[in-house]
Each structure stands twice: as structure tokens, then as C-alpha cells.
Design a binder for these strands. Structure first.
Length: 822
RNA sequence: GCCCAGGUGGUGGAAUUUGGUAGACACAAGGGACUUAAAAUCCCUUGGACUUUAAAGUCCGUGCGGGUUCAAGUCCCGCCUUGGGCACCA
């Protein structure tokens, strides 16, 4: 046994086969056990796993294995986010059908998963491009259409010319496409939307439930994205008496309005005839999103010549078209108060519009002529009719009430969140199940006719147009209502639709319904979700929306899909995220080949806590490999002393063994806590390394004896099962080598005896005026008084106290004595 | 500009929950043992400056400057800096 070699390739293959054959990770409903649904974000099958994946899924696997050993009924599925542009681009470039390209990638990545020893229940596998999955996408779409939650709208949308498709607001980052980083422009198109704005309030309220279990950062990002603001809708008037409504969050400044501004896209502008003004309007409409929205670009406008009447004052002010005014927010028009809004101030200066002060600083009045920026702080109302003299914060309320009473205003809540545009002008996605009929109009496909199958025998013409639009066999279909000739919708759904409900589908992937009621009710919600923070306002917001919709439809019992969320950090090398363009990519396959999966897993967890970024280090990997070797050799060397069902309790241990036993129980306690309460796997591993170092201090004599053998066996019985969560293959092998017949995957997580977790001897410190002067070892049950006595007798302390007056003494039991002198 | 999270040895990181021995664990470095030799392995040293023949000891030290406290990496105030998010939302 002693010279047994650590042949990780053989060991890992062996145990992967055994787990596979014994169906070790299959999950079944068991009402006698507490369920634990652990999910990691499923990957896009790009072809190869990268280190980011390896880290994400390793963190998940430890968590799953730990809970399994803790006695939970663990559900740990995996699948593929398999629709999307890369497959289509690959198809166009290399003339490989997207379905084949994607399926090949999946099979390769699945092999990589297997090599890493992850504990997935593959019988629950989901592949989003398969009919039996996207059928339910379509089914959900129809249900949402029936409820008015899916609708078609002609409007200005984000267009990425590189990807040749529309993007949702969440998919535009700094005016650029989230995928390819090319400039996004605005285009007017007929598009399908999901009415996520109906759930704005719910999405915000739900955060309450998540505030202790989700990273604060994610909640903050979502809250900012939803952007709730309360204010007043005020009906300004045209000279003709026509209403001109605007929304403002600053009703307290309404007496300071000196101009109005309206979005270039506003239908109101249809009445403009002046060719010069029209020229400007046209120009604004064609500006790119980043020109329109970036703050450093100038705010441009043009005076329409139209006058607007302020209902509070009766004063007429000019109406400008402003390129910064958004059609989609509020009413598409605003009141402008240069005196108290920086943007309005800059605009007013540019176009020679007067500045009027309506909120002032008592004792230090503002002078519009000498101001270089708007006054945006709180103050006292002036030039505000009957509201003069009160605090502006108070005026907000009073002015709102006044407007409501007089019938020209209404308090309103507005959201920054827009409806989710889901149409994509691309082929490789889920077809939108809609048929257009000349007589019946827009008609959803009948449920019994689902799925609308995405044809796989398609021609790519080398251009980026969707082949569906040119495919007669797909396009032509009888109208479901009248039977006349109809045409199918050729846009496909945003792939974020696929991932918005997949977590629930895992519970019953082959069900004849969207979900199997028993399964989904038992397993949902996800107890722990793990993934990257980059999806904070994308996937994680959409998934919550879908979950709420499904909850309202009675499909899910829970409203929130993910009870706990962990967002893991990136894998960094040479100070940058691993990426092809930076040339700092480390290939997981190569590392597994060289050191084995257990080492890779261990390094992924040891190098950094899950939440933080992880610095890749080849040397660090070697260190982890060395640790496994140390354990391996120790077990081989002392395996001959192993006895089953150890119980050192019965025997008298000498001091050395007693100390080791305490270290063991302390280690179990700390490791358990680090995993369970803190999800801090790096420190858990450090504790086990420490214990190992302690064990290496011992020699044959230490354990060669009745008590020694018992203790040693207890060590093996606790340490190896703990290790099996992290390095499962080698742990199983060592366990088997010791003569155990059971598999660790089904073993119970070791316990500890609380009384054995505190050391007999502790070190306390003596301080004088807060500075450490001496350290002594004492019995851990020492009294406060005894500590103080010891301190007063301590040579060092006595020396420091000489000629000084003791002001007071502070004693922290078990820690320190601090003597304050003068 | 606003919001959030960080800044600890040569390096990755502990300790932050609850103010109470800063630097666990690992890497790197140095030394030693084993070996014909190397690799592997095992052991020891390792924050800085200084005093001392030595044993030992003194001072400084958690981005910077203040403060609270018997005691601050931890709390408060003000800066510097890195990363992330948001950025005309009326």
C-alpha cells in the first residue's frame, strides 16, 4: 500500500465510470427529505469550456456534493443555451448547418464536463434548440399574447447592423451591442414586445424577499435599471386650448419654466410645416443612440415657433424640439427649468432662453445673470405665487395637490424600464408562433399545432438575412381562423426568452405539458443559483419576470425563481480577463491532462473566494497537486492502522493524540461552517491543509497503538469524506483503499463534538496601554481573576509598570489583559 | 458626475460576522536532509528597520491624513487610488 502511485488518470476515469453506472446523481422526488435545487447558469455551447465555466461549475459541484452529504435531496441538472448568433455565423462562414455545429459543440463540452467529475443528473438535460423545449417557448408566448403580455408595436428600436438584428434595451451597453460592440442605431420596425413594464412594481417589491440572499450589487443594478420615479403629470396648454401633457419629478419648480421641449419622434410634430424646423427634426431622428444619449455630446434643439401655456402662471413659453428628449419616457415632452436643472441651464444658455429663479437660498440670494450652473439644492420657494416662502420639499406636495384639485395635474409613477423587445431578425432561434392573415389579421398558432418547427434544411446565401423570410415552405400556411392563405412571422425570439424559464423546465424536461406538476412543485424554486454578474439586468431580470408571469398563470408556486444567488468572480491572468484577443487563455483540457481534474477543481476553489476574481497561477496549480499528493501518501503510509467504526472515545489518549483530536474536530467545525454559512471554500481548504500539516508532524510511533489507531481512523473517517466534496475522485479511491465498501458520494458529512473544538491550552496576551508586552500559554478554563493575577506577576509587565499609576485594567476572558497606566 | 465594492508581505490571499495576538493557508525565495547526481519527497527560515556574541529584545507596519477608544486592518470624517455599475429617464 505504501508505494501506491497517485495515478490520477486511472483513478478519475474509474470513479467517473462507477458514478455513471450506479446512477449516483439521479434525483427523484422524496418527500421524506428536504430538497435542495442547485443550479449554475447553463452555458452557450460555443465549443469548448473555458476557465470561467470550469470555475462556475466547480463552485456549483462542491455546493451540490456538500448538500448531498448533508442529507438533502439534491437536484443538480445541466443543459444548453443552444440557440444564438455564433452558430448562425459559423454556418454562414463554414457552410455547416447551425444544428450540426451546435450539436457537435455540445457533445464535446459534455465530454469535458465528464472529465471534471461534476455531479449532474444528465437525465434532466435540456437543449433549447430542440423542439420539445422551444415548443413551450411558443406556448408561453401564446399564453402571454392572450393575456396582453405579448404585443406587436411599430416603433423606434435598437438596431445592430453587424448582427443584423434588433436588440432589447438591456442588450445595449453604452450605445453599443452587448455581443459585438458595434454602434447601435435606431430603426423604425414592427416588433414583438413582452410587457415587462407591467411587472415593474412586482420586480421591485420582490427585492425585499431577496435582500439577504442576493448580492446587494445585483439588486441595486436592477433597481436602478427599473428606475422608479414619482412625480406629477401636468397638462400644459396650447394657445388653441389643446392639452400638452408632460411628466416632472420637480413640480416645485413649475413656476420657473421658461421653455418646453419635445422628442423629435413625437407625433405632435406632424403639424410642423416650417422646412427649416423639419430639417432639424429629421437630423435629430437620424442621430445614433450614443450621439443622442451620451452626456458629453451637445444638447441640440430647434424652436418650433409654437407657444405653450403654463397652467399655474398663464405664462407662454416657446416649445423646442430637443434631441435629448426621449419619446419612450413619460409623455415624450418635458417642461424645462433652467434655474434648477443643469441640463436645462446649459440648453437655455446655448439658445438664449431666460433663467428664472423659483427656489432660493435665504440670506444669499441667487442672481441668474452671474450663475454658471443651475441651483439644484433645496431652498425656499420664491416667484411662485401662493407657494412663496415655503420649503421647496414641502411645495412638491402642495403644488401636486393644487394641480390635482384644479384638474390640470395628476400624480404619477414612471419607470425607466421599457418593454422587452424580443423579435430577432435571425434564423437560429425559436420561431414566433404567429400567422398573418389578410382578413383575420394577426393570429396566434393553435396550441395543437405547436411547435412551429424551425426548418433545418436551410440555405444561407452568404448575406445576413434570415433564410426563413425566403423560404416558401415555411412562410405559407393557412390562417388558423378562416383557413385562407396566411403568412408566418419570420422573426425568431431573443435567446434570453429560452433562458427565462429553463430552470423550471429542468424539473420535467420530457413532460407532455410545460411542467409536470408534481416535479415542478417539489423542486422549485432554485435554492442556490450560481453564475456571472454580467447578467444582473439581463437574464436575472427576465427570469424573475417570467417566474412571476408563470406564478400568475398558476404554473409555479413560487414567485421568485432563485432563492439565493452567488455571483462568482472572473478568472484573470496577467491582470486581465482571459480572452482570445489578449492571448492569455489557459485551456482547461491541457491542465486536466497534466494534473487531473481533482487538482483543477481544488485550485479553482483554493486560489480565491468564489465571489472575488481569481488570479490564474501555474505555480498555484502545482501547489494544489502537491497537497493531494501529501494526503495520498499519508493515507497510504498509515492505511495499515485503519480500523472501521473507530471510536477513540473509549480509549485514554495521551497528550499528543488529544491535541490532534482537538485539531480534527476544530477542522470539521470550521470547514463545515465555511462551506455552509459563508461559501468560502478557500479557507475551508486551508483548514484541511493545516490539519494535514499537523498530521505530518506525527510519525509511526504516534499512531502505533490502540488509541493511536483509533484516532487515526477517526481522522480518516472525517477528513476523507470532507475532501470528497472538493476532490471527489481521489477521495473515493483512498476510501476504497482503506477497505471501505461504500461510495463517498452517498456518505454522510462528518460531524464534530463541540467540546472537542476548543483547545486545552490557549495563548493570552498582556498589554500595557494597548501594546502587547507579553504572551503566555494558559489553561483554557482560566478565570478572569487568574488572568489578571498572572498579568500582574509577569516580569515584562512589572517592568513596564514601574513608577506608573494604574488607571484601570481591561480583561477579555480567554484573550487578553490590558493595563492602562499613567 | 453619481452609486457600489476594493486597496493587507515579493505574490494569491487569511483575520472584517462581534473592535481585542495582523499576515492562517499556499506560491515564490533561501537553507538543510535524502540521492553518485537530479527530479520527487521531507524538514527549517521567511513583513520591514534596528540592538545584541548569543539568547532575546526595541521600534515601525493593513493606500494617505485626521479622529473616537484602554485597544482600530475592523468604527467615524476628509482625501488618494483601482475595479465594477449607471450615466441626459425630465
Amino acid at each position: 500500500m505504501e508505494d501506491r502511485e497517485y495515478d490520477f488518470k486511472k483513478i478519475e476515469k474509474k470513479w467517473q465510470d462507477i458514478w455513471d453506472k450506479s446512477k449516483a446523481f439521479l434525483s427523484k422526488i422524496d418527500n421524506s427529505k428536504k430538497k435542495y435545487y442547485l443550479l449554475e447558469m447553463f452555458p452557450y455551447p460555443s465549443g469548448r469550456l473555458h476557465m470561467g465555466h470550469v470555475r462556475n461549475y466547480t463552485i456549483g459541484d462542491i455546493t451540490a456534493r456538500f448538500h448531498r452529504m448533508k442529507g438533502f435531496n439534491v437536484f443538480h441538472p445541466m443543459g444548453w443555451d443552444a440557440f444564438g448568433l455564433p452558430a448562425e455565423n459559423a454556418a454562414i462562414q463554414n457552410n455547416i448547418p447551425p444544428a450540426k455545429w451546435t450539436a457537435d459543440n455540445i457533445s464535446h463540452m459534455k465530454k469535458q464536463f465528464a472529465l471534471l467529475g461534476f455531479s449532474y443528473d444528465w437525465t434532466r438535460e435540456i437543449t433549447s434548440f430542440k423542439e420539445n423545449y422551444y415548443k413551450w417557448n411558443q406556448w408561453m408566448f401564446i399564453k402571454m399574447y392572450e393575456k396582453g403580455l405579448a404585443y406587436k408595436k411599430n416603433g423606434s428600436v435598437n438596431w445592430c447592423s453587424q448582427c443584423a438584428t434588433v436588440l432589447a434595451n438591456e442588450q445595449v451597453e453604452n450605445g453599443q451591442c452587448w455581443r459585438c460592440e458595434s454602434e447601435v442605431t435606431q430603426k423604425v420596425l414592427d416588433q414583438w414586445f413582452f410587457r415587462i413594464t407591467d411587472y415593474a412594481e412586482d420586480l421591485l417589491k420582490g427585492h425585499e424577499e431577496l435582500k439577504d440572499t442576493w448580492p446587494e450589487q445585483v439588486i441595486t443594478m436592477q433597481r436602478n435599471w427599473i428606475g422608479r420615479s414619482t412625480g406629477l403629470k401636468i397638462n400644459f396648454k396650447l394657445e388653441s386650448g389643446e392639452d400638452f401633457p408632460i411628466f416632472t419629478t420637480r413640480p416645485d419648480t413649475v413656476y420657473g419654466v421658461t421653455f418646453m421641449a419635445i422628442a423629435p419622434e413625437h407625433p405632435f410634430l406632424a403639424r410642423i410645416k416650417d422646412s427649416n424646423v423639419l430639417k432639424y427634426i429629421h437630423e435629430f431622428r437620424n442621430q445614433s443612440l450614443s450621439d443622442r444619449t451620451s452626456e458629453d455630446k451637445g444638447k441640440d434643439g430647434v424652436d418650433t415657433g409654437i407657444k405653450i401655456i403654463n397652467p399655474f402662471t398663464g405664462v407662454k413659453v416657446p416649445l423646442f424640439v430637443g434631441n435629448f428628449v426621449l419619446m419612450e419616457y413619460g409623455t415624450g415632452a418635458i417642461m424645462s427649468v433652467p434655474g434648477h436643472d443643469s441640463r436645462d441651464f446649459a440648453f437655455a444658455k446655448k439658445y438664449g432662453i431666460p433663467v428664472k429663479i423659483v427656489i432660493d437660498r435665504p440670506g444669499n440670494p441667487l442672481d441668474p445673470a452671474s450663475m454658471s450652473d443651475a441651483f439644484t439644492s433645496d431652498g425656499i420657494c420664491v416667484n411662485s405665487g401662493e407657494f412663496n416662502g415655503i420649503q421647496n420639499t414641502e411645495a412638491m406636495e402642495k403644488i401636486s395637490m393644487y394641480a390635482e384639485k384644479n384638474g390640470f395635474g395628476k400624480r404619477e409613477v414612471n419607470y425607466r424600464l421599457r418593454d422587452w423587445g424580443i423579435s430577432r431578425q435571425r434564423y437560429w432561434g425559436c420561431p414566433i408562433p404567429i400567422i398573418y392573415c389578410e382578413t383575420c389579421g394577426t393570429v396566434p398558432v393553435k396550441e395543437k399545432d405547436l411547435p412551429v418547427v424551425l426548418p433545418v434544411d436551410v440555405d444561407f446565401h452568404g448575406d445576413s438575412k434570415s433564410p426563413l423570410a425566403q423560404m416558401e415552405s415555411f412562410l405559407n400556411v393557412p390562417c388558423p381562423t378562416c383557413g385562407a392563405r396566411g403568412r408566418r412571422e419570420t422573426d425568431t425570439m431573443d435567446t434570453f426568452v429560452d433562458s427565462s424559464w429553463y430552470y423550471a423546465k429542468f424539473t420535467s424536461p420530457d413532460s407532455m405539458n410545460i411542467f409536470d406538476k408534481d416535479e415542478v412543485d417539489y423542486w422549485m424554486p432554485v435554492d442556490q443559483y450560481i453564475g456571472g454578474i454580467e447578467h444582473a439586468v439581463l437574464h436575472l431580470l427576465y427570469a424573475r419576470f417570467f417566474s412571476m408571469v408563470m406564478n400568475d398563470m398558476g404554473l409555479l408556486k413560487s414567485r421568485e425563481p432563485f432563492s439565493r444567488l452567488l455571483t462568482q468572480g472572473m478568472v484573470i491572468k496577467d491582470g486581465a480577463k482571459m480572452s482570445k484577443s489578449k492571448g492569455n487563455v489557459v485551456d482547461p483540457d491541457r491542465i486536466i491532462e497534466k494534473y487531473g481534474a481533482d487538482t483543477v477543481r481544488l485550485f479553482m476553489l483554493f486560489a480565491s473566494p468564489p465571489k472575488k476574481d481569481l488570479d490564474w497561477s501555474d505555480k498555484g496549480v502545482e501547489g494544489c497537486f502537491r497537497f493531494i499528493g501529501r494526503i495520498w501518501r499519508f493515507v497510504n503510509r498509515f492505511g495499515k492502522f485503519y480500523v472501521k467504526d473507530s471510536n477513540p472515545e473509549k480509549l485514554e489518549l495521551n497528550d499528543e493524540l488529544k491535541k490532534i483530536r482537538i485539531e480534527l474536530h476544530r477542522t470539521v467545525k470550521i470547514v463545515t461552517n465555511d462551506i455552509e454559512k459563508r461559501m468560502q471554500y478557500n479557507t475551508a481548504i486551508a483548514r484541511m491543509m493545516e490539519l494535514t500539516n499537523t498530521l505530518y508532524q506525527a510519525d509511526e510511533k504516534t499512531f502505533d497503538g490502540q488509541a493511536g489507531k483509533q484516532l487515526l481512523s477517526e481522522i480518516f473517517d472525517k477528513l476523507i469524506p470532507m475532501l470528497s466534496a472538493f476532490i471527489p475522485h481521489v477521495a473515493e479511491e483512498m476510501w476504497e483503499n482503506l477497505g471501505n465498501g461504500n461510495m463517498l458520494v452517498n456518505h454522510r458529512w462528518p460531524g464534530y463534538i463541540e467540546e472537542l473544538t476548543s483547545r486545552d491550552e490557549i495563548e493570552i496576551v498582556f498589554q500595557v496601554n494597548g501594546k502587547i508586552r507579553s504572551k503566555v500559554s494558559v489553561n483554557s478554563d482560566i478565570t478572569k481573576e487568574a488572568m489578571e493575577d498572572l498579568a500582574m506577576q509577569n516580569d515584562k509587565v512589572v517592568q513596564m509598570l514601574e513608577g506608573k499609576e494604574i488607571v484601570k485594567t481591561i480583561t477579555v476572558p480567554g484573550k487578553l489583559v490590558n493595563i492602562v497606566v499613567r
